[in-house]
Design a protein around this nucleic acid. Structure first.
Lengths: 215, 215, 215, 215
DNA sequence: GATGAATGAGCGTTCATTCAT
DNA sequence: CATGAATGAACGCTCATTCAT
């Protein structure tokens, strides 16, 4: 089954399935290049299909965005599972954040839309919970090995990743596209157990919000 | 000279200058509320002026955005100067990042537009260099006091701030608007000298980019 | 021969004929519910056939509408014949108008399309002449029995019916769907011989057009 | 004040007012020719303005339709008042129905939309009540003069008019456009007191609905 | 100088009809 | 033959920008 295809959807004819994939691929490209305001016309043109064909598969632009997020979620879950198989728990955390940020860094606008769609799409919400569960495992495993500070939860990984990846959106010309790697490094430093314990007393920020509630 | 007004612009009549300020103030409000896609018509209405008046002062929507970024840059510079006056060098760093992220967190779309405009507008580029100079002073002062890891440069503060503030744009409903504070805390932890020295050998990320070139 | 099927059409295979009937039945339902702007896709879906199948049988949406009008014309002719068999000639007229208006009242858009199609389709035009002939018999029979004013012709019944039925299309919410019955009553009153003779002298309207020419 | 212009609307500049009238006039023409499905683009072109100009004055196609209905309502009220001034009460009724049907006969689709809009627009609803009040006066005056059957109410005039006018929509080519006059005559015959009293006992239709409730 | 009005270009979306399987 | 897929043309509507008052 192709990525992003719902198990419950009726089987598509071969040509239709091919077009569907073309559209999704084109949308990922175009959204990455110009952000979510890119027009459906441009996406259809890039895919080499008529605009109406796009709307046959994705009755709404939102549906298209949601489908793309679904693809990303599956990839994210696969990455998390792979990282859970790492022998070194800390390296699992590191690889996960690195991989997530790497993809998010080229997806410009898409990450920003993720949450809105999760609310609307039950499928997406379920997928999201699955990823959260996996990252929680990653976190707990690293904490047990004393490789990760213990005031961190699974969802923190997602936010850290999102924050770091956002740097790739900064359109300074001449700016290294992989600058985010530098700042992911600093974030990772801040996630080590030593960083937590050495914090100056009275530091205001980290203590403020202990348990971010994210569904 | 009014904030955000170019030094080379011809002097405006009093009423024209007043309108200019009204428009800038309205734009800051409206952009913060609805993002950069807010319409010029809405901004003009909020300012209580005609739409054509807006375009007389800012021939392009981009020009208006640029002007707003200019206002923010002046505020940022003022904040940096105030933080340089802090007795405790580390607290200066902390307050600067906190203050910058706090404003960025309510400016939704604007932060993302900053870099594009800096390239186009020489005024903005100059202002930016000034801020960079101030943050470099902040950084060096903290490093001399052994409060900040020494592989950090002035511009890193800007990027860290930007990354953290981006979290405020995540539209999870029900998500605490001040969640960015939690992650700024982690980032700050990663900036301490101890965090740098304790990093596992072989950690790939931070070492990758030593000297980000940003103009 | 199936209802609405042209005598000159080549014989259809059994399954094709079945599909044709399914489509016509579905179209009658859907048009009655949503008017003539209902989409061919909806009709095909209601019929349980593919959209292309619909267009194989009816190369144009207009052809489908024409076919439905044909079905209605056959029903109308049958009704007229049944009313001719009434013992009471006036009751024949009354029952005919009542029955025609009753159906038209639920067919929303279709009545309005009838005439356009009659012109285009020779089959339909022939059918129409047949109905006109029957209504003329209804009228003459009632006139001979002195139950109907004598300045009325067969085609007048069609127009009166159409006028009354149009009231069912008025989309006042909360309006009784059978309000047309009230006005059919008034119309019937106006058709009685006494109504004609009692008209005030000089009344401009009825005398204006003595012999409407309708083909 | 121009017809159809709300007393509470802000004053329009001269050129804008002219364009507004051009648009309304064009819309009346185009809707009359092609029905309410005529496109806003066609109306704008007929008016000789850009499409966006149309939408500036009437933010929605519905708003445009509503405005046109408003114009008609004002004309209708004026007609009713004029007919109330007739010396002969019956002739007042006759002239009113004749005038209303005459205009409706060229307005094709518009009458059908009237009720939907009345619900949405308070202005329109008020105007409608005013017309209903005037027609009720027309009816009562004629009934007192024993010129109109007494089981008729003011709103019946509107429905009768609507039914008769609908005949003008029948697109039979070669059909006299003023055929509705003939049937208005029959309807008027049915409205005379004699028609009511002479009705055969047992006639089912008229008695069915005594008091149609229309707001 | 200030304004409301005007507009062309574009957007997301629909649909009758044609095409490939 | 039956079908789902594809599509061009159109629709109602928005908006940054220009024009006339």
């Amino acid at each position: 089954m192709a990525v992003g295809e719902s198990a419950t959807a009726p089987a598509l004819r071969a040509d239709a399935a091919r077009n569907r994939e073309l559209i999704v691929a084109a949308a990922i490209e175009v959204f990455a290049e110009r952000g979510l305001e890119a027009s459906t016309a441009d996406i259809a043109a890039r895919a080499g299909v008529g605009e109406a064909t796009l709307f046959r598969r994705f009755p709404t632009k939102d549906d298209l965005v949601t489908a793309i997020i679904g693809v990303q979620f599956e990839e994210s879950a696969a990455l998390a599972e792979s990282c859970l198989a790492d022998e070194d728990p800390w390296q699992g955390v590191e690889r996960f954040l690195y991989g997530m940020a790497e993809r998010a860094a080229v997806d410009h606008g898409i990450a920003g839309a993720t949450k809105e769609k999760c609310v609307a799409s039950p499928t997406l919400a379920g997928e999201r919970r699955r990823i959260l569960d996996l990252t929680s495992q990653l976190v707990r495993r690293a904490q047990k090995a004393d490789a990760l500070r213990d005031d961190i939860a699974g969802q923190d990984l997602m936010f850290v990743m999102s924050a770091v990846a956002s740097l790739a959106d900064l359109p300074f010309p001449g700016l290294r596209a992989d600058l985010w790697k530098r700042y992911l490094g600093i974030f990772l430093d801040g996630l080590r157990p030593e960083a937590a314990t050495r914090l100056r007393p009275g530091a205001p920020s980290r203590k403020v919000i202990e348990n971010p509630e994210v569904e």
